[in-house]
Amino acid sequence: MRFSIEAKLTTKASALEILQEWRDQCAVTEAALANTASLGHRVDIAHIHEAWSMRGAAPLLIIFMAPPALAAEPLVAPSPSLTGSDLQKTVSDSVHTLASGEESQPQPEINEKVGPEPQLSKDEIIEQIKQLEVQLMILKRAAGVTPEGKKIALPKNGIYVQGDIGLQQREFAGENGITNLTFEPGLYGGVGIGYRYDRNFRFSFEYSTMQNAVSKIRPGIPIPVEDPVVGPVGNNGARFPANGDVKLDSYTVNVYYDLNGFGYERRFRPYIGAGVGLMTSKISGLQPAFFPSIGVDRKLDASDTQPVLNFEAGISYLLGDQMEFYLGGRYTYTSTFLFEDTSFGTLMPNGARNWTIKTGARYTF
């Protein structure tokens, strides 16, 4: 523990004013010294140095207090022990001398050199420089600065939420050799909550939904049917119009890797990702379009849930450390669905295979 008492006296009047302040400080110091002594510490005056080039310069008093365990190796040469009262008297006498205009004799300085610093070899110096360069590079990356000293925009780590919309196209689906369906393009929507671990890795829990209207049905076997509007349909495996739609709901866990950026402050950051989860397919009102014209009122309404995989890639733009916009594509794959006890019996069509292009925003708290 070190106490320093320092004052600058430019005139006799200012010396008298500061004297009272020093006396107050000495009272506090005396109380601290008394408390230190009660704890078994040794109180030494390590250095009392009074040096000034003109009348009114201030003495500098530094008190070093070391616990008994350190008494054998003091930081500086020990001096006679003083009590708090002796310290207060010493300071007061010094100020009185300055206030009366008397010159004080400069005291010899105490050499506080501990010893020569160890000399390093050339190889040791080079090795230390290399270590410092590595540490500097790590600090620059953590601070978002390139090795050339340019600023890098980095995303904030932590919990984030996101939302996106887009367009998707589903590949044909159905039971090979029996019935195949083709679909119109549909909409995509998704929301998610995730956690960014660092500048590159993040993961999220996401919900997405896609819906496609059924465009046409192609029977696996020839079904000669005379449609009053389009004429003969179903011959030789030809496709004919259909009614109904299919909705796909996915619940997935996804892992992403954001590559290092490019462009202005490296704000453009490509990413890749993959996920696994469950997908529910819900078919509503599926039937050939000619059924009503021939008096058939059978429709397919069914649902089933199966495992799903998705793969995606895209690019993000870092607007700030908390806000990102992104544009990307996703491919969703499900092997097969099983629809049991439908109006057409038990069906096991091909699963969903959807290509999606989407855009959205991500906000980190």
Results as ranks from 00 to 15, higher is better:
71 A>P: 03
347 L>D: 08
173 A>H: 11
126 I>R: 13
137 M>G: 15
214 V>K: 00
119 Q>V: 05
358 K>V: 08
348 M>W: 10
314 G>V: 10
339 F>A: 01
297 D>N: 09
90 T>M: 14
290 F>R: 03
106 P>A: 06
201 F>N: 13
295 G>R: 00
26 C>V: 10
108 P>Q: 14
31 A>C: 03
343 S>L: 09
29 T>S: 10
290 F>A: 04
274 A>H: 05
237 G>W: 11
236 N>L: 13
166 G>R: 08
230 V>M: 01
70 L>D: 11
74 P>H: 09
233 V>S: 01
229 V>D: 01
274 A>Y: 00
255 V>H: 08
46 A>T: 07
167 L>M: 09
222 P>N: 05
312 E>P: 02
264 Y>A: 04
263 G>W: 10
244 G>L: 06
149 G>Y: 02
209 T>R: 15
320 G>N: 15
313 A>G: 14
312 E>D: 07
29 T>A: 15
104 S>P: 03
59 P>Q: 04
339 F>I: 01
182 T>M: 10
328 G>P: 09
291 F>V: 01
133 E>C: 10
247 K>L: 00
116 P>F: 02
210 M>K: 03
243 N>V: 10
294 I>C: 00
328 G>E: 03
241 P>W: 06
112 E>L: 15
364 T>P: 01
284 S>P: 04
100 S>H: 14
126 I>F: 11
111 N>F: 03
216 K>Q: 15
55 R>H: 14
77 A>Q: 02
268 F>E: 08
29 T>N: 14
87 L>T: 11
112 E>V: 12
60 L>A: 07
117 E>M: 11
1 M>H: 09
289 A>T: 03
278 L>N: 04
264 Y>C: 02
349 P>G: 08
335 S>C: 03
308 V>G: 06
30 E>A: 15
200 N>Q: 00
180 N>H: 12
246 V>K: 07
220 G>T: 00
